[in-house]
């Protein structure tokens, strides 16, 4: 009976994962391996193709059939800050008015705003997923905030892995493939931001998790009882323990030949924390060096006093 409960939990989290995350690993791998027929992504490999691809990058305007209802809610909710508004507020839409910045610099920053806007939307998706974890919404509300604040970037980095291969990454819901070389060619510090994620993702992808495994692993990350400032750790640890059991069982059934997969996966959580710490430092550096840069208010909230 206990194993049945753990399998039911795995099924529940997988369903929530499919509900809230538009681009699954299965879809991303199909796109990356060219199994989607004529539906090939637009490739951004230099500044010219970046500018050509900008119309695709405005994620908020891309309708997603399977998530039409959520997309409608999202569009309605975009009375807040879109990447276009952020760029506008920072004077980036009129590139000639920016002293000390050429057109290329403005395009880089504008792309950065698109990333921020998509990240903010992804935070909303992760929040909905977290709320679907049985028992999460019963936790102290302050602790729910803390778990999300500390867990959400780790979750986003894990979710980036299926979109990446050694040559580049899918962005804009899989409609664009951006090459790793292009990202490395951006000016500092932009060029340094994605490389650690590629290195992590290429190694992480060798574990060959599927979407159902991912759903459980993301829940384990969110339910970390050692986040700073938690008020009531015990119920969080109890929830995490149940999800960990479910994950362990799932991996044994789904990957019988992969030795020590559970242990290897848990080890990744340590690597993740370092990547997040480095990422936050990059963002702090950007704030200092890019005088024209605006940080999305939701991301500001998350990163303030994080590490």
């Amino acid at each position: 009976p206990e194993a049945a409960d753990l399998r039911a939990l795995a099924r529940h989290l997988y369903e929530a994962y499919l509900k809230y995350f538009p681009l699954t690993k299965a879809k991303a791998r199909a796109i990356l391996s060219g199994k989607t027929g004529d539906n090939v992504p637009f490739v951004i490999h230099d500044m010219k193709s970046l500018m050509e691809g900008e119309q695709f990058i405005n994620c908020s305007q891309i309708p997603i059939q399977e998530h039409q209802q959520q997309a409608t809610v999202l569009t309605a909710g975009h009375g807040g800050i879109t990447e276009v508004q952020m760029a506008s507020e920072c004077g980036l839409l009129e590139t000639t008015s920016i002293s000390g910045h050429g057109l290329t610099d403005a395009v880089e920053l504008r792309f950065f705003y698109s990333c921020q806007s998509r990240s903010a939307e992804a935070v909303r998706e992760v929040t909905e997923f977290a709320k679907s974890i049985p028992g999460f919404t019963d936790l102290d509300l302050n602790d729910q905030v803390t778990l999300l604040k500390y867990g959400v970037i780790e979750v986003l980095i894990i979710m980036m892995a299926p979109l990446m291969n050694k040559d580049g990454t899918l962005i804009s819901y899989g409609q664009i493939f951006m090459t790793r070389e292009f990202l490395k060619s951006l000016r500092k510090p932009f060029c340094q931001m994605m490389e650690p994620k590629f290195e992590f993702s290429v190694k992480f992808n060798t574990l060959e998790l599927d979407d159902s495994d991912m759903a459980l692993f993301l829940a384990v990350i969110i339910l970390s009882g050692d986040r700073p400032g938690l008020l009531n750790v015990k119920p969080i640890e109890q929830l995490q323990e149940t999800v960990l059991h479910s994950l362990e069982l799932r991996l044994k059934l789904n990957h019988p030949d992969s030795l020590q997969l559970f242990a290897k996966l848990l080890q990744k959580m340590t690597d993740l924390r370092q990547i997040v710490t480095d990422h936050v430092h990059f963002m702090q550096l950007l704030k200092k060096t890019e005088v024209d840069m605006c940080l999305h208010p939701l991301l500001q909230e998350i990163m303030k006093d994080l590490y």
Partner: peptide, 21 residues
């Protein structure tokens, strides 16, 4: 904590209504 994280708090509280991102 809730005061410092108004948007996160809002995201956690609003299950279906749109949230300004």
């Amino acid at each position: 904590l809730k005061e410092k994280h108004k948007i996160l708090h809002q995201l956690l509280q609003n299950s279906t209504s749109p949230v300004d991102l």
